[in-house]
Design a protein around this nucleic acid. Structure first.
Length: 932
RNA sequence: AGGCGCGUAGCUCAGUUGGUUAGAGCGCUACCUUGACACGGUAGAGGUCAGCGGUUCGAGUCCGCUCGUGCCUACCA
C-alpha cells in the first residue's frame, strides 16, 4: 500500500466528501426483515424537526448523541434503523408563508384557503428540506430512503383514524369553553403552548353600587379592568358574614349601567382581598365555571384580535390595553375606583409569538384524556401512567419518571383544534340542515341523521402535536399491521430534550400506548404497546457563560459555522465529551479547538504509520492491512472479537497496549450502555492520545527505525504490522464519535479497497478477556514511573535537554530488575539516558535520586541545584506523607475500623501504610542530605 | 404557591452502591523546532470539594439547616 495523506489535517477537505458518499451509496438504508427479531433490532426515531427549522446547537447535540448510539449498535451487528422525518409545524409554517405574502402586500384571505395551502406546499417543497440537508453535514446515519413528513398521505390517514376512533369512544368532544387564545396568531392554543411569566402589574379595586341601598357598595378587585364590561354577576362566599345583608341583592355595573346579581359561590374566598369577586363568564375560566353553576349570561366584549367589540359600549373598537387605560380613567372620574396596587401577575404568553394570551370563550375540540372509553378500559392518561409505572418505558435520567408521572397525574383535557389553515383538517362535517356533526374517515355523502347532502367540513385544523403524538406508529403504517410495524415497533429508544417532554414524549406515550394496547390481540400486553422502550433526556446547549442561547440575546451559535471552523468531528466530539446525563452543556469554543487538535493528532499519527509502512514497502517488506469481517447483520449476533487477531504481542509494550485496548473497549461499551457519552469520549481520547501516541508509538520507534539487517526488517515489519492493526481497531472504536476522520484514514489503510464499503459497517471492537494482561499493565506502569522519575530529576537538576546522562537503578525485586533490563532501551530513549547501571543497595538520598516502592533511580550528574527550591519540594512531600501516615495509623489502631471495614480496604491500607514508611524514610533522608 | 436541580482547580466539567493519595480538558509557568504532529513534546504550579451541624470506624459522596443560583409546573380575583 502506498499512501499520501496531506500534511495538515483539514476537515473541510474530507467531511463533505464522505457525507455525500454515505447518502449516495444508501449505506444506512435497511430493508424490512422478513421475520421480526426484536432482540437484534435497534430502532430510533428522529424527533422530526420543523420544516421551517434551521439547525441549532440543540439539534446538533441531539443528533450527535443519536448518531453515536446508532452507529455503535449498527457496528455491533444490530439490524439498525434510524428513521428521519420532518414536522409540518402548523403555526410556524403558516406564519412563514404569510410573511412571504405580506411582502407582496397580500393576506392569506386574499388567496382563499385552497390557494393558500397550495402556496404552503410550494414553500415546503422549496425550503422544507433545508434542515435535512444540514443534517447530512453532521454525518447523521439515518435511513434517508424512509424520510417521512407528518402530512404524507399515510400519516394523514393515521391522524384521521385516531380522531375517528377517539370520537367513537366518546373521548373527543366539541364545545364552547374558555381557552387560551393568541390574538396575534388568531387561534386557540393549548395549556402547554402558554408560557407563564411573573410580570409586574396592577390590581385595581372598583366599587359597584348596590341597588336599593343608597351609599352601599361592593368592592371588587381585578388585574384586567377591561373585562368588567362583560361582568354578569358579583360573587361572595356564602359563609362570609360580611356580605350576608347583600344576599339576593343586585349591583349596578359601573360604565355599563347594567344590573347584575350578587351570587353566592365558593369562587369567592373570604380570605382574599375584599372577599367579593366580579364574575366575567366569557373571559375567565373560573368565572366561566361559576357562570355555568348559576346560569349566567356570557357576554363577550372582545373579538378574535382582542379588540373591544360591540358589547363593550363606549369602548368598542379599542385595543384591550387602550380600553383598559380609558376604563381606569373613567372609573376614577366617576368615583368608582377605590384603589390601585402594584401586583405581580402570572401572565400567560403565546409560546410562539410572546403575545399576551387572552382567555377567550370559543367553540373548540378537546380530547378527554381522563375519561374512560365507551367500549371500556382505562383512560388514555391511565394507560400512559401504567406503562411508565410498570417500567415498559424507562427514563434516563430516572428522575424524569417522577416528573412525567406527576404531570400525567394532573393532566387536563387537551384542546386540539386550531383556527389555522395549514395542518390536518378535522375530519368532521356539519350538516347545514340539522346541525348534526358527522365524524368520518372519508368525506361523507350525506348526513347520518337527516340524510341531507349539505355537509360542510369543519374549518379548524388539528394541533400539530396531535399528529406527532402518533409517531412512531404512523410512519410504520398504523392502523395497518404492516411488516414494518411488526419489525420495528416498539422502537428501542428515543433521545430528546426535556423541553418537549410534555408536548411530545408524554403525548406519544399516551396516544401510542392507548391505540396499540387496544389493537393488541392480548390486551394484557402493555409491553408491546409502548412507542419506545427507553427515553434518554438530555440537557440544553447554553453559551460559554451558561446563558440560554436566544436570538434576542444574540448569543446563538450556528453549528454550521462552528463546523466550518473546526470540522464536524471536533464539534461532535465536543458535544459528546460534555454530554453528562442530567446537566446542561456550556458550549465552549476553546473546547472544540482542543478536540480539533485531537483530530490533528490522530491524523499525524496516521501519517507516521503510513510513512513507515511505505518505507518498508520500498524495501520489499509488505505490511498487510488487517482483516476485518463484516458484522453478521442478518443474524444480528455480536461480533465477539476485538479484531486484533493479527496483532503480535512480542514485547512488553505490545502486551500492554493490547491489554489496554481491550479494557478501554470494555469501558466504552459500558459507558455507552448508560448513555455516558462523556465517559466514552474521554476514554477513547485518553487511550488514543495518552497511551497509543504518547507511549506505544514512542516505544516502538527503535524497532521501526533499525532497518539495516534482515532481522531488523522483520522486527520492523512486526512493529509496523502491530501499529496498523492497533490503529485500525482504534479507528473503529472512535468511529461513532468521529465518523469522518476515521472513515478517511480507514479507507487509506485499505488503500481504497476496504473489506466493506464503510468503517460504519465494520464490527465494533468487543473486549476479549484473553487479550487483557494485568501483569503487562503493572510492569508497564513501573516502566512509565521510572521514565517519568528520571525526566523529573533531569528537570530538577536543570540538565541540558540534549545531554545524555548515566543512571543507577536499585530494583526492589529480581523481577523488577529483569523487566527494567529488558526495557533499558526505552528508558534510554525516552528519558535521554546514556547508560543504565544496576546497584545492589539503594542509593543515598539526594536531589539526584527518586524513589518508589519498586525502585530507586539516581541520575549521575553533578550540578549545583537550587537548594531552597529542592528543600521546599521535599518538605512539602514529607508533610503530605506524614499527614497520610498519621491518618493511616489512626485508622489501623481503631478496633471499630478493623472490625467493620471490608477486608480489602483494611488490606489496602496496611499495604499503603508499609509503603508510606519507606517513602517517608527516603524523603526525610533526602532532606537531611540537603542539610535542611 | 408547589416540585426539581446545581454549588469540586482561574474557566468548563467528571467523581458510579460512603473506603486508601479528589481527576480531566482548556488556561497559566518554565524549558524544548528530538527523523508523525508547535493543532506538538517534557516538567510544574494551582483545591479547608459553598457554609454550619449530624450519622458513621471512615463523608466530596448520606441526613438536616443556612446562603447563593438555575429551571419546570400552577385557572386564585
Amino acid at each position: 500500500m502506498s499512501h499520501e495523506l496531506p500534511k495538515a489535517y483539514d476537515p473541510s477537505a474530507i467531511e463533505q466528501r464522505w457525507a455525500e458518499y454515505w447518502v449516495r451509496e444508501k449505506l444506512f438504508h435497511v430493508e424490512t426483515p422478513a421475520t421480526p427479531d426484536h432482540d437484534h433490532t435497534f430502532t430510533l426515531l428522529l424527533p422530526p424537526p420543523n420544516v421551517t427549522g434551521r439547525l441549532h446547537m440543540g439539534h446538533m447535540l441531539n443528533q450527535t448523541e443519536m448518531d453515536i448510539i446508532v452507529r455503535w449498535h449498527r457496528m455491533r451487528g444490530f439490524h439498525t434503523l434510524w428513521l428521519p422525518g420532518t414536522d409540518h409545524a402548523g403555526i410556524a409554517t403558516q406564519m412563514m408563508v404569510e410573511r412571504q405574502l405580506a411582502k407582496d402586500g397580500k393576506k392569506r384571505t386574499d388567496l382563499g384557503r385552497e390557494k393558500f395551502i397550495e402556496r404552503v406546499w410550494e414553500w415546503k417543497e422549496e425550503y422544507g428540506g433545508a434542515i435535512l440537508e444540514q443534517m447530512k453535514r453532521l454525518g447523521a446515519s439515518v435511513d434517508w430512503e424512509r424520510t417521512f413528513f407528518t402530512m404524507d398521505a399515510n400519516l394523514s390517514r393515521s391522524v384521521r383514524e385516531a380522531f375517528v376512533r377517539l370520537w367513537e369512544e366518546g373521548l373527543i368532544y366539541r364545545g364552547a369553553y374558555i381557552v387560551n387564545w393568541c390574538p396575534r396568531c388568531v387561534t386557540a392554543i393549548s395549556d402547554l403552548e402558554t408560557i407563564h411569566e411573573e410580570t409586574p402589574g396592577k390590581l385595581w379595586e372598583i366599587r359597584y353600587p348596590v341597588i336599593g341601598m343608597e351609599g352601599e357598595f361592593i368592592t371588587v378587585a381585578t388585574t384586567r379592568p377591561e373585562t368588567m364590561l362583560g361582568d354578569t354577576a358579583v360573587a361572595v362566599n356564602p359563609r362570609d358574614k360580611r356580605y350576608e345583608h347583600l344576599h339576593g341583592k343586585k349591583v349596578r355595573l359601573p360604565l355599563m349601567n347594567r344590573e347584575i346579581p350578587v351570587i353566592l359561590d365558593e369562587l369567592a374566598q373570604p380570605e382574599f382581598g375584599t372577599g367579593a369577586v366580579k364574575v366575567t363568564p366569557a373571559h375567565d375560566p373560573n368565572d366561566f365555571q361559576a357562570g355555568l353553576r348559576h346560569g349566567l349570561e356570557q357576554i363577550r366584549v372582545m373579538d378574535e384580535h382582542a379588540m373591544m367589540n360591540e358589547n363593550a359600549g363606549l369602548y368598542a373598537g379599542h385595543d384591550r390595553y387602550e380600553a383598559r387605560e380609558r376604563i381606569v380613567h373613567d372609573l376614577q372620574e366617576q368615583g368608582f375606583l377605590v384603589g390601585t396596587k402594584d401586583y405581580t401577575v402570572p401572565l400567560g404568553k403565546c409560546d410562539r409569538c410572546k403575545t399576551i394570551v387572552e382567555p377567550r370563550l370559543s367553540t373548540q375540540w378537546f380530547v378527554a384524556v381522563n375519561k374512560e372509553p365507551k367500549s371500556g378500559g382505562p383512560s388514555m392518561a391511565q394507560i400512559a401512567r401504567d406503562v411508565v409505572e410498570q417500567g415498559y418505558v424507562k427514563f434516563t435520567p430516572e428522575n424524569y419518571k417522577t416528573i412525567y408521572l406527576n404531570w400525567m397525574e394532573n393532566i387536563h383535557d387537551w384542546c386540539i383544534s386550531r383556527q389555522l389553515w395549514w395542518g390536518h383538517r378535522i375530519p368532521a362535517w356539519h350538516c347545514a340542515e340539522c346541525r348534526e356533526i358527522v365524524v368520518s374517515r372519508d368525506e361523507p355523502k350525506q348526513c347520518t341523521k337527516c340524510g341531507s347532502s349539505h355537509l360542510e367540513q369543519d374549518t379548524d385544523v388539528l394541533d400539530t402535536w396531535f399528529s406527532s403524538g402518533l409517531l412512531p406508529a404512523s410512519p410504520f403504517g398504523w392502523p395497518e399491521a404492516t411488516a414494518d410495524a411488526r419489525a420495528f415497533y416498539p422502537t428501542t429508544l428515543l433521545i430528546t430534550g426535556f423541553d418537549i417532554l410534555f408536548f411530545w414524549v408524554a403525548r406519544m406515550i399516551m396516544m401510542n400506548a392507548f391505540f396499540m394496547w387496544r389493537d393488541h390481540s392480548d390486551p394484557s400486553c402493555l409491553k408491546s404497546a409502548v412507542p419506545f422502550e427507553n427515553v434518554y433526556i438530555h440537557g440544553l446547549v447554553r453559551d460559554a457563560d451558561r446563558q440560554k442561547m436566544s436570538k434576542t440575546k444574540g448569543n446563538v451559535l450556528d453549528p454550521i459555522e462552528v463546523i466550518n471552523q473546526y470540522g464536524t468531528d471536533a464539534t461532535r466530539f465536543t458535544l459528546a465529551s460534555m454530554a453528562s446525563p442530567g446537566t446542561d452543556i456550556a458550549f465552549n469554543e476553546q473546547r472544540v479547538e482542543g478536540y480539533r487538535a485531537f483530530a490533528n493528532k490522530i491524523w499525524n499519527a496516521a501519517r507516521f504509520m503510513f510513512m513507515n509502512v511505505d518505507k518498508l514497502a520500498e524495501m520489499g517488506v509488505t505490511v498487510d492491512a488487517p482483516k476485518v469481517c463484516h458484522p453478521e447483520r442478518s443474524e444480528g449476533s455480536l461480533s465477539s472479537a476485538s479484531g486484533l487477531s493479527s496483532f503480535t504481542a512480542a514485547t512488553l509494550e505490545d502486551r500492554w497496549i493490547l491489554s489496554r485496548f481491550n479494557r478501554v473497549a470494555q469501558e466504552v461499551d459500558e459507558s455507552l450502555k448508560a448513555y455516558r457519552f462523556d465517559e466514552a469520549a474521554n476514554r477513547v481520547y485518553s487511550f488514543f492520545w495518552g497511551e497509543f501516541c504518547d507511549w506505544y508509538v514512542e516505544l516502538i520507534k527503535p524497532r521501526m527505525f533499525e532497518l539495516e539487517s534482515d532481522a531488523g526488517k522483520q522486527t520492523a515489519k512486526t512493529a509496523c504490522q502491530n501499529t496498523v492493526v492497533m490503529f485500525e481497531a482504534a479507528l473503529r472504536l472512535l468511529s461513532p464519535m468521529m465518523p469522518f476522520i476515521t472513515e478517511e484514514i480507514w479507507h487509506a489503510i485499505y488503500d481504497g479497497k476496504p473489506p466493506v464499503e464503510s468503517i460504519a459497517l465494520a464490527p465494533y471492537p468487543q473486549p476479549d478477556p484473553a487479550q487483557m494482561n494485568a501483569d503487562a499493565e503493572t510492569e508497564m506502569a513501573i516502566l512509565q514511573d521510572l521514565i517519568v522519575a528520571t525526566r523529573n530529576i533531569r528537570a530538577e537538576l536543570k540538565v541540558e535537554p540534549k545531554v545524555k546522562v548515566p543512571v543507577e537503578i536499585h530494583a526492589s525485586t529480581p523481577q523488577v530488575r529483569e523487566m527494567i533490563e529488558h526495557n533499558r532501551g526505552a528508558l534510554e530513549r525516552l528519558a535521554n539516558v546514556e547508560s543504565v547501571a544496576f546497584v545492589d543497595a539503594a542509593p543515598q538520598q539526594s536531589a539526584n535520586v527518586r524513589s518508589t516502592t519498586r525502585f530507586d533511580v539516581r541520575v549521575v550528574y553533578e550540578q549545583k541545584i537550587d537548594k531552597a527550591a529542592e528543600g521546599e519540594r521535599l518538605k512539602k512531600e514529607v508533610e503530605k506523607l506524614e499527614k497520610e501516615r498519621s491518618n493511616a495509623e489512626r485508622q489501623l489502631g481503631n478496633q471499630n475500623f478493623l472490625a467493620k471495614a471490608p477486608a480489602h480496604v483494611v488490606e489496602g491500607l496496611k499495604k499503603r501504610s508499609g509503603e508510606l514508611e519507606v517513602l517517608l524514610e527516603k524523603a526525610k533522608a533526602a532532606l537531611g542530605q540537603l542539610g535542611c
